[in-house]
Amino acid sequence: MSFSVLQDYLARLSGAAGNTSSIWLDHEGRAQGRFFNCTLSSAFHPIRALQDGGVQAYEGLARSAAAQDQGLSLWRLLDHAASDDESVELDRLCRLLHALNFFRQAADGGPDLYLNVHDRLLSAVSSNHGHAFRRILDALELPLARVVLQLPAATPQQGWLLNYVADNYRRNGFRLAINVAAPAEALQILERLQPAAFKLDAGVATDEDQLLALFARCRAAGVALVFKRIETAATLERLRALAADAGGAVLGQGYLLDQPGAQLAELNAVGAVAA
Rank of each mutant, 00 (worst) to 15 (best):
A244T: 13
A220W: 07
A62T: 15
Y169F: 12
Q259S: 14
R12Y: 00
A31S: 13
A186N: 02
N101Q: 04
F35D: 01
S127A: 10
L214Q: 04
D69Q: 08
S64K: 06
N128S: 14
A11F: 02
C94V: 14
D201Y: 00
A17Y: 07
Q56S: 14
F36V: 13
G254L: 01
G159N: 14
L142V: 11
G109H: 11
P156H: 05
G110Y: 06
F215C: 11
A43R: 05
N172F: 10
A249D: 13
E237P: 00
Y164D: 12
V165L: 09
D79I: 12
F102P: 01
D79V: 14
D85N: 09
V88Y: 01
I47W: 02
A99S: 12
L100N: 05
L137D: 02
R104A: 12
L142K: 07
N37R: 09
F35W: 07
K228L: 01
L211H: 04
N163F: 00
D258W: 02
D8C: 12
A177I: 10
F3M: 13
A244G: 09
G33R: 02
L140N: 05
N172R: 10
L214Y: 02
G130K: 02
L72P: 00
T20Y: 05
A57T: 05
A272I: 02
R238V: 02
V270K: 11
S14T: 13
A221G: 09
W24Q: 03
L151C: 11
A224G: 07
F198G: 02
S22E: 12
Y164F: 01
E231K: 08
S64I: 07
F227D: 06
L193G: 01
Q56G: 13
L74R: 12
H27G: 07
L13H: 08
D85I: 03
L113V: 06
R171L: 10
N168Q: 14
S73Y: 09
A182F: 09
N101F: 10
E28P: 00
M1Q: 10
L113G: 00
L176P: 03
L122G: 08
D245K: 15
N168F: 04
I178P: 05
C218E: 03
G53S: 09
N19T: 13
F3Y: 15
V165S: 05
K199H: 07
D26Q: 01
S4W: 12
T235R: 13
A82R: 01
P260C: 10
S126E: 11
N19Y: 13
A196C: 08
N172M: 06
L74A: 11
N163R: 15
A67P: 09
L187P: 00
P111S: 06
A154S: 14
L96A: 05
S42D: 05
L142C: 06
M1E: 08
G222P: 08
G252P: 01
L50H: 06
